[in-house]
Design a protein around this nucleic acid. Structure first.
Length: 264
DNA sequence: GCCAACGTTGGC
DNA sequence: GCCAACGTTGGC
């Protein structure tokens, strides 16, 4: 079966939970390469992780930050297994109601693949999804009406709080193309539109600066990995039993879920 | 199993 | 920092 597609959220900005920073930005991810997506404490998000298979594609999203959006592409490299952080009382995502004999929370390992040359801001997706027609804005002409329709169905815009979401293949393809081609002026996704210079110039400018701005999500630092809430994150220190994967501290839970909930 | 109170997510 | 949306808890 063909790979499925997903979107997973991490927090690129520092946030201390139980004394540990749960930050995990795209820079952190790129550095550690593979991370266990721990800390998801929402049943629906967990159930989705249990459906993930090796090789499935993952869009890495920056949440709870100044410029939320899609920053990179990753791949599932280990299928669901118990999230040990749930029973580690010192961990930010400890869940006293769980135990090893009967794991409640699961995680997958995800491996960084590539950054999107053009960070895709949530503001752009929302603006596109909010359009009353299916005609893309000029800068996004290349996605066509189908592209607009695909974006309109995204869980990211229809139900913001889910930290792990399924992404339709068509939507995934559209997002990858956007990440590849860009064409929008970042500035105008957040503020009013900048004067537009010829489109070519704009594109060019975007390309020139985008490298730096893409990180805006907040990842300016590059050292420790921590995930955002709800996302994943973790820190590699805690354990090395698994040695092959370094883990940042990821996850948080916010997006994922409160610490002990399960819903879903 | 309903639902009100409460807590969290996460954009702005 | 605010607060809307929405998920969870827990009484009944």
């Amino acid at each position: 079966m063909p790979p499925k597609h997903w979107l997973m959220k991490a927090e690129p900005d520092s946030r201390i939970v139980k004394g540990k920073d749960v930050k995990f930005s795209v820079d952190d991810f790129q550095q550690v390469k593979t991370t266990a997506w721990e800390g998801v404490r929402n049943a629906e998000a967990r159930n989705l992780m249990k459906e993930m298979k090796m090789g499935d594609k993952v869009l890495f999203y920056h949440s709870n930050c100044k410029n939320p959006g899609i920053a990179a592409v990753a791949e599932v490299t280990r299928e669901a297994y118990p999230d040990y952080t749930a029973w580690d009382s010192s961990h930010p995502y400890y869940d006293e109601k769980t135990d090893k004999e009967n794991p409640k929370w699961y995680m997958v390992d995800v491996t960084f693949q590539t950054r999107l040359p053009h960070f895709i801001p949530l503001s752009l997706l929302k603006r596109t999804a909010g359009s009353s027609t299916d005609a893309p804005e000029e800068e996004l002409e290349y996605i066509g009406t189908q592209g607009v329709q695909a974006i309109k169905t995204m869980a990211l815009v229809t139900r913001g709080r889910l930290s792990v979401q399924r992404v339709e293949e068509k939507t995934y393809d559209v997002l990858l193309e956007m990440g590849q081609r860009g064409g929008w002026d970042e500035i105008d996704t957040k503020k009013s539109k900048a004067t537009k210079t010829s489109k070519k110039v704009q594109v060019k400018q975007a390309e020139e600066t985008e490298g730096e701005r893409d990180n805006e999500g907040g990842s300016t630092q590059k050292k420790q990995p921590k995930p955002a809430r709800g996302k994943k994150r973790k820190a590699g220190e805690d354990r090395d039993s698994d040695a092959e994967t370094s883990r940042p501290l990821r996850r948080s839970t916010r997006t994922s879920r409160p610490s002990h909930v399960e819903g879903g």
